[in-house]
Write a protein that binds this DNA or RNA. Structure first.
Lengths: 214, 214
DNA sequence: TAGATTGTTAATCGATTAACAATC
DNA sequence: TAGATTGTTAATCGATTAACAATC
């Protein structure tokens, strides 16, 4: 059982949240143990893949038995960094900002919304999630006083890069980016893109594939 | 120059919307031609990768010159199926439903929102995008009368699978799924998932990587 | 024509699958 | 113990990179 992982590939990382979700569901259904084979059929992966994936982090299973759901879930929770709490702010309090602010799951996993910002005077002062929207002018002061881990970016495409520069200059290291553009950020900043336009276009492509006679 | 493509891998398909986006931007900046090398540095890919990708669809380039931006963009637009129009409905008119309904880009690319549905009586009758929210009871009749291409699913996790079954039973072949669960659908239905929770957890993982001393 | 850059083949790299010894 | 299932190595498959002849 090796403790320390060689560099884990992005392919594996992207599957971790799925493992976490499925294990959480199993736990809620009082399932105590699961084999790589069972989990594979549940998740649409192969048993080999699962054993390879999990073993890149450590030996969480037991020969002849399988994996203990509770233990494995805890391990993946920790790997995902969900044993810590995070502070976050939302920039852009339009519908997308509101949608995200109301995701109960974020808070439940320790990601706390503590601020929201917008340039639109009509939105400043309104409530999003459980915070009052402040004007962007107050961003700098706020970030300097609060040690923010994550910025959830929900601004229009046209201003996305500029806002990203502002927040990274202020020292924020993580961006969950809903603005439909690729951000240029320093090396020590991580960005996770949620590009809805790209998803729609992937769908229209696939739709052609299943619909057309070809 | 071969016209008909062997099966294109999902890896390539997922890059197509990005090509489309970058080419659209280039066109707006009046750039007429681009080489694989230039496009690669713009998009963060390699020139080889780009030439391989584009060649799986056909020979769009010209030796010694590069690619004509307008022509290549048109080609990819067509490959993505964006030369056709699509009708779509939104199910679930919460904040996420509203956010999507207001994406101007969808309409601009020919994806027309023609209906929205919700179970909440307080939401029925309100306006989302440019349509009035109907009760879910009216879904069946509506879909039977309108030939819907795409369902944008913005309902809570708990009812996602059930609603997915309803719409696929009604013959809808494409689902853009914002509900944070994996849907089980027939083989001739395509689903594109936008799983915001998964994205957040990927971000917390990456955040640990850049922040920790290790 | 000479220079540039594609299309395409071959080489490399990485991810998935298969197989099985280790072991609970 | 015998059966089951992991951890891990080896084989296969697929995607990326490199290289270069074709050609604009």
């Amino acid at each position: 059982m090796h403790r320390f992982s060689k560099k884990v590939s992005m392919t594996v990382v992207k599957r971790l949240p799925k493992y976490y979700q499925y294990l959480t569901d199993l736990l809620l259904n009082d399932i105590e143990k699961i084999s790589s084979k069972e989990l594979a059929s549940l998740m649409g992966l192969t048993a080999s893949q699962i054993r390879q994936d999990l073993n890149s982090f450590g030996g969480y299973g037991q020969q002849g038995y399988g994996y203990n759901v509770l233990e494995l879930r805890e391990a993946i929770k920790e790997i995902l960094g969900l044993d810590s709490d995070y502070t976050c702010i939302i920039i852009g309090s339009g519908n997308m900002g509101h949608a995200i602010a109301n995701y109960e799951r974020f808070k439940r996993e320790g990601v706390m919304l503590i601020g929201a910002f917008d340039v639109d005077p009509l939105r400043v002062g309104t409530v999003v999630g459980n915070v009052v929207v402040k004007h962007m002018d107050e961003l700098e002061g706020f970030v300097k006083n609060h040690d923010i881990d994550i910025c959830i970016l929900c601004v229009p495409r046209g201003v996305g890069q500029q806002v990203a520069k502002t927040v990274t200059d202020l020292g924020i290291k993580g961006i969950l980016n809903f603005s439909p553009l690729d951000l240029d950020v320093p090396d020590d900043v991580v960005v996770e893109n949620v590009n809805i336009t790209d998803s729609l276009f992937t769908l229209t492509y696939l739709l052609k594939e299943v619909t057309d006679p070809e």
